[in-house]
Amino acid sequence: MKTLIIVLIIVSFTESTILPIDLVLIILIARSYIRSDKSNLWLAFSFGLLSSNLNLTALGIQSLIYLTLVAVSEGLSKSRLAGNSFLIIPLSFVLLSLNQLIFASFLSESFLFPKIVLEAIFSLPILYLIRLWEERFIVQKEIKLRV
């Protein structure tokens, strides 16, 4: 978890200074798609606040959006289709479009369609990286077998 938080902090700063891609949201969506956990909501809330502050938007607005999108992603991860990793691309596309749409309407920004497509494509390798990290490097709780 500590590593993920550090990565998210770095990514938050990166997306506000160098690379204008919603990497934080993509990571959050990908993680909530892989693993349903309370920590996803906390991460969405806190990094929504940080992103709001870094991107000079009203505090709380990005937390709200992130929380909603993470909740939707977690909900969809329980469906039968979620076994297919490639579903992350259309899912990210829809969720990122929603995010962009809300921002576009709220901040009177233009809707950047190519950016959404690029981000949606990025979501697949990010999903694989997070899955690799979560499965190989995160120690899971011991499974207690009922005897």
């Binding site: 349903s36 309370k38 909501l41 906390w42 969405a44 809330f45 929504g48 606040l49 009203a58 505090l59 709380g60 607005i61 937390s63 709200l64 929380l67 909603t68 909740a71 977690e74 909900g75 329980k78």
Partner: peptide
Amino acid sequence: IPNLKLLLILVSLSILILVLD
């Protein structure tokens, strides 16, 4: 919706922060 209670709390908190901001 898993962790609905936490979600609602955090959403409320976000709205509160938004209003305060």
